[in-house]
Amino acid sequence: MFEYAKYLRLNKFPLIWCAGCGDGIVLKAMLRAIDKIGLSNDEITMVSGIGCSSRLPGYVDFNTLHTTHGRAIAFATGVKIAKPEMTVIVVTGDGDATAIGGNHYIHAARRNLDLTVILFNNNIYGMTGGQVSPTTPVGKKASTSPYGNLEPSFNISGLAQAAGASFVARGTVHGAHMLEKFIEKAIRKKGFSVVEVITPCPTAYGRRNRMGTAVNMIQDLKENAVTLKKAAKMSPEELEGKVVTGVLVDIDKPEYTEEYAKLSEQLKNKVGVD
């Protein structure tokens, strides 16, 4: 039995998440990944923005920073650059990271700053009561799209890839072990890493769209998930409505804090200011 307690602030329990929420599965997968890498609690700073998933840092015994809406990556950038030896993990949601915080998300990827972003994608603004988000599928209902959503979704993993991330993986809370592996790889990666996790929000999204119980929603995830390998053999029509899982990007390229350290070192050896 895995010992979660050493990473948790048990006196802060119970969690604020609703029954059936997938966020707890991601929390556990993340803690197992951290344990596998062997990081101590002091070596980790966990930064979040605003939303359900962003309440996660309150429950873990790391250096934890719960910031303003959308700005987790901006705050994390300061922490990481000021203290490059720190492992900085950002916990955020689809609305937080790709609507209000979209600019920080793409620019941190472009810089290839060594952050690990765990992006909980539940297709909705859960905490504020179920408003439409950049990843709500077309036609789905939300409290601010009562007639069905008209706007196409972001492919948020694709966004990170296009912007220059070193590592991008997508998983679902149905595949908790796969998720653990993705998170482990993401943290180990020197560079900007994203793990997009598809997670159900039965309260604010499922109920409004008649998707059944939390168990039904997780079963749907299982049925709709297609591995990268399998997806390669499918037509775009066949892939409609499916969730492609797997490691989408895993490349090595210069990382920002390392490049900055090199520059500083070079300048130190030069005498005088130009």
Partner: peptide
């Protein structure tokens, strides 16, 4: 945001 993170 970044200066707040750096200060912490």
């Amino acid at each position: 945001g970044a200066i707040i993170g750096a200060s912490l």
